[in-house]
């Protein structure tokens, strides 16, 4: 028994290593895609020593492509991790920050900032947008938590409640578009679809930092998260305080997800599908699943970023459209497959 337990651990570590390699490959693929003809060799050489490129290509690589490619990794990892934790603590495979409305609420918060341009003393307009997005994401997380506590954590109804919040967030954002001027509407549309191309280095650093700060908390919780996969009754019977666990997890998930989407918009389905791919590859042991879900999220978004540049030559499709087009069929497959197991 123990030998095969250990062997399984090794297999999963190898799998994590494989995911990491795939991620690096996808990062290079993403960096190389685009209208300016930069070859893979040139990129690798320039990453080693930036003087290898002429100024124009250097600007393209370091100020445009690299931040776009890296924010895809950071946001993808953040969404993958927050999706996994949401699914585990709500014990529902269809839960994710996107399907629970957290992203839609964040988009509404961003829309408020765009349309009304509020300011607070000491906080400029550029900071108000992520701040409001964060605030509304937290509000949505809080509502989900409150509902799950009031209903005693009934797993199906929490997701339905989340759907209702998603619709509410979307409707409120539409209302904003109705009152906003043309420029504001353009910005909001970018926001609700999700687009990586407007991010720069500060955004990359902010999202990465947030992820790096949250990850240790998730890693400290891996045993409890794994135990939760046996079901609520079992976890409770062993003395785990489910309400407290849910509170902490949903709090950090809301913060992480808010940071992830507040710069690039409400990119859908990465947080839903990333964890499921990780589960198929790595099983349910959260020691491997927590890093695995982050890696899978990053990989998906990085590949989507590559596709968004490669599908139509000369045109960059907003990445949120790609993730949704790929995500919806997988989401449906999950609903059908859910009948068979948890």
């Amino acid at each position: 028994m123990e030998a095969s337990f250990r062997q399984l651990g090794w297999r999963r570590l190898v799998m994590l290593g494989g995911l990491l390699l795939a991620l690096l490959a996808s990062l290079l693929l993403d960096l190389q895609a685009g209208p300016a003809d930069l070859s893979l060799g040139q990129i690798l050489a320039a990453l080693w020593d930036s003087e290898q490129l002429d100024l124009r290509h250097r600007i393209i690589l370091f100020d445009v492509r690299l931040p776009d490619a890296l924010i895809a990794l950071a946001v993808g990892a953040a969404l993958g991790l927050s999706g996994l934790e949401t699914q585990t603590v709500l014990n529902n495979p269809l839960a994710s920050p996107y399907t629970l409305g957290v992203s839609a609420f964040a988009a509404f918060g961003a829309g408020l900032a765009i349309v009304f341009m509020p300011t607070l003393p000491g906080i400029g307009h550029t900071l108000m947008l992520p701040l409001l997005a964060l605030l509304f994401a937290l509000l949505c997380g809080g509502l989900v938590l409150l509902f799950s506590r009031l209903t005693g954590g009934a797993r199906e109804s929490v997701v339905l409640f989340g759907m209702a919040l998603f619709f509410l967030g979307t409707a409120l954002t539409s209302a904003l578009q109705y009152v906003g001027d043309t420029e504001a509407v353009d910005q909001i549309v970018f926001w609700t679809i999700g687009d990586l191309t407007k991010a720069g280095w500060p955004e990359v650093i902010a999202v990465s930092l947030c992820f790096a700060l949250v990850l240790p908390f998730s890693l400290r919780h891996v045993w409890v998260l794994t135990l939760l996969r046996a079901g609520e009754a079992q976890a409770q019977s062993l003395g785990l305080d489910l309400n407290r666990i849910r509170l902490w997890v949903l709090l950090r998930v809301s913060v992480l997800c808010a940071f992830a989407v507040c710069f690039v918009g409400a990119i859908g389905f990465v947080g839903l599908i990333g964890p499921h791919i990780a589960r198929i590859l790595l099983g349910e042991d959260h020691r491997y699943l927590v890093p695995g879900a982050a890696l899978c999220g990053a990989l998906i978004l990085s590949l989507a970023s590559f596709l968004s540049k490669a599908l139509l030559p000369g045109v960059i499709i907003p990445v949120g459209i790609i993730t949704s087009l790929v995500g919806v069929p997988i989401f449906l497959a999950l609903i059908v497959g859910q009948k068979r197991r948890v």
Binding site: T226, R229, A230, G283, D285
Partner: peptide, 13 residues
């Protein structure tokens, strides 16, 4: 519940 968790993993965790 019927998850993909394995008994040994469950007890260990």
């Amino acid at each position: 519940q019927e998850s993909a968790l394995r008994p040994f993993e469950l007890l260990w965790s």
